[in-house]
């Protein structure tokens, strides 16, 4: 297990840090011998005009995605936890979006949100709303990618929270019913507190996965127009691979900033977990 961890995580992590500390050109990437540059790449990023907007978009994108994914996922989990005809099959169908490669699901979304011939604008037109330039206006592009990302994240939240619900003993609910608690009270007094460890891990993992999301944004808007949907993850990708001339160093540096952000939240999580165990 330790060896596995080291070979498959420590080595790439080490590579990423190493990349960010050197001035790589395409030549030194292939031939070796990139000069050590210390924190130059980090300085370059911090002073880049993209930094501010990218930070803001990362926070908004992550916060909004998490809030909606989790709430909708929780509501659906509670709903499907009441057994009714077809509940199992329908719940399994909710996972179908996860079976699709991201290139397909993201392309489908950009198809539906197309300003000219998209089905969403066509539907808005039917109810008399002016067409919205979902992907091509700086005001809407971030909203659009958040919608698509929430859609992709719902199955994950649903499944993990649902299996958490199954771990709550039914006797607790029976006792509460005897006390005359309403459905809403049962949720807040039993379901929510009992789900706390699972919710915490779901949110944490959700946070990490959302910080990392780049394919969806990249395919739908390329982070544009004019950086209006650029997050750290897409910025990192754009620097490293989005151009004919890759800038690996700054790309890796942005990636490491993301890791630091996750690190902070990870620390908070572990502190809370400790307190619960103690």
């Amino acid at each position: 297990m330790t060896l596995y961890l080291l070979a498959f995580y420590a080595y790439p992590l080490y590579r990423n840090i190493e990349l960010s500390l050197r001035t790589y050109t395409v030549r030194s990437f292939v031939q070796g011998g990139a000069p050590f540059a210390g924190l130059d790449n980090y300085g370059k990023i911090l002073s880049d005009p993209t930094f501010g907007p990218a930070l803001l978009h990362t926070v908004v994108f992550t916060g909004a995605s998490l809030a909606f994914q989790f709430t909708i996922g929780m509501a659906l989990a509670v709903f499907f936890h009441q057994h009714f005809p077809l509940s199992g099959t329908l719940r399994a169908l909710f996972l179908v979006p996860w079976l699709l490669p991201l290139i397909v699901s993201a392309s489908t979304w950009s198809w539906m949100l197309n300003s000219e011939a998209g089905v969403v604008n066509a539907a808005l037109g039917v109810v008399g709303v002016e067409p919205v330039n979902w992907l091509t206006s700086p005001q809407w592009s971030l909203v659009s990618v958040i919608i698509a990302n929430v859609w992709i994240g719902i199955p994950f939240n649903l499944v993990v929270l649902y299996s958490g619900l199954q771990g709550i003993p039914g006797t607790l609910y029976e006792a509460a019913s005897l006390d005359g608690a309403t459905g809403w009270q049962r949720f807040w007094r039993i379901t929510f507190p009992m789900l706390r460890p699972v919710s915490a891990i779901t949110l944490l993992l959700g946070l990490i996965y959302t910080l990392k999301v780049f394919d969806i944004i990249w395919i739908m808007t390329r982070g544009g127009p004019t950086d209006s949907s650029t997050t750290f993850a897409t910025w990192s990708y754009r620097l490293g691979f989005g151009n004919l001339l890759p800038a690996f160093g700054p790309g890796a540096a942005v990636g490491n900033l993301l890791i630091v952000m996750a690190l902070i939240f990870g620390l908070i999580y572990i502190r809370i977990q400790r307190r619960q165990q103690a």
Partner: peptide
């Protein structure tokens, strides 16, 4: 260890 596991997931797939 669980901390490392968390961080490990942040490494961009393409770098891995």
């Amino acid at each position: 260890l669980s901390f490392v596991l968390l961080i490990a997931q942040m490494i961009p797939g393409i770098i891995m």
